[in-house]
Computed example of a mutant assay.
Amino acid sequence: MQGDREVAVLRYGHRPGRDDRMTTHVGLTARALGADRVILPDNASQSEETVADITGRFGGPFGVERTEELDATIRDWDGVVVHLTMYGEPVQDVEDDIRNAHADDALLVVVGGEKVPFDVYRHADWNVGVTNQPHSEVAGLAVFLDRLFDGSELDQTYEDADRRVIPEACGKHVEDVDDE
C-alpha cells in the first residue's frame, strides 16, 4: 500500500493453458512488489489458487479474487486507473504525476494479457509504457510498481507467514517461522 492508497492490479484477459504461468506471475509480482490485491479473470482459477497458496505460506496481507466483469471493474473504479501498455506515455515522464494524483484515491493498475480493447485505453487515466518496446507484462508491472513506490516496497515485511526466506550471498535458506 502506498500511504493510505490502495493499489490493486487487474489482469485483463487470460487464455487457459497458454497464460496460466504469466497470469500467476502477474499476481505474484503484484504481491511481492507492494500491491494490496490482484483481480484475475474468472477463468484463472489455477492462478488464483497458486497466488493464495504463496500468500498463505510466505505471508500477507494480500488479496486475490476473480471476476467476470473486467470491463465494469475498470469503468466503475472509484479512483485512478493506470493501464500498462507499450503504446503509453513513458513511465519516467508520468510516474510523479501518477504518484501524486489524488494520492488518497485507490489506484487500479491494468495489465493486459490478450489484445486489450480500445475502451480500456479510453477509461484509463494514464496509459503508461515501460520502454515502449514489446516485452513481458510481468516486467512492465515490476518496473511500474517499483517506480510508484519509489523502492520502498523492497523493504516490506509480511505478516502471518509460515515460511521466510533468509537472504544469503550464496545458497538457498528458507525457514519455518515456527522454528524461531
Rank of each mutant, 00 (worst) to 15 (best):
A142Y: 04
V116F: 03
V130S: 05
V174G: 04
G27F: 13
M86A: 01
E65V: 03
D20A: 10
V94I: 09
E68P: 02
I74N: 06
P167G: 05
M22W: 01
A72E: 14
I98C: 14
G13E: 03
V64Y: 08
L70E: 14
F144C: 00
D53T: 13
A142V: 00
E48I: 02
G63M: 06
A30H: 14
G3N: 14
G3D: 12
A103P: 15
V81L: 09
R99W: 11
I54T: 06
Q2V: 13
G129S: 15
H123V: 01
V80R: 07
T29I: 02
D146W: 10
V116W: 04
K115G: 09
E180P: 01
I74A: 13
D150A: 05
E180V: 06
V110K: 13
T24Y: 09
V82E: 03
E175V: 12
R122Y: 03
H102T: 05
S47P: 10
W126T: 05
V111H: 13
H83G: 04
V82N: 02
V38Q: 09
A52Y: 06
C170T: 13
A30M: 13
D119E: 08
V116M: 05
F144K: 00
G60L: 02
N132T: 00
Q156P: 02
D146V: 07
E159L: 08
P16S: 05
V128S: 13
G60T: 01
V128G: 07
Q133W: 05
G151W: 00
Y158T: 03
G63A: 12
N43V: 13
G34L: 15
F118T: 02
E137T: 08
R57A: 09
H25P: 01
E137A: 07
E137V: 10
N43P: 07
D178F: 12
R11H: 10
D150T: 00
D97I: 03
P16G: 05
Q46K: 11
R147E: 12
L84P: 09
A142D: 03
D78N: 15
R75C: 11
V64N: 07
V116C: 08
D178E: 14
P41F: 01
K115M: 11
E114C: 00
G113V: 06
H123C: 01
H83P: 04
D155Y: 08
R57D: 12
E65Y: 05
T157W: 03
K172I: 06
V109Y: 12
G60C: 01
A103I: 04
V143L: 03
T50P: 04
V177D: 06
D155T: 12
G59I: 10
R21M: 02
Q92D: 15
E6K: 08
I74D: 11
S45Q: 14
A142K: 00
A139T: 12
V38K: 08
H102D: 15
E153T: 06
T131E: 10
D19S: 11
E68Q: 07
L145T: 01
Q46R: 12
Y121S: 05
N127L: 00
Q156M: 09
V80S: 06
I39E: 04
D155M: 08
Q133Y: 06
P61F: 03
Y158I: 00
A103Q: 09
G79I: 10
L154K: 14
L40E: 14
V165T: 02
T55V: 14
T55K: 12
T50K: 06
D78S: 15
S45V: 11
V174Y: 09
R31V: 11
P90M: 07
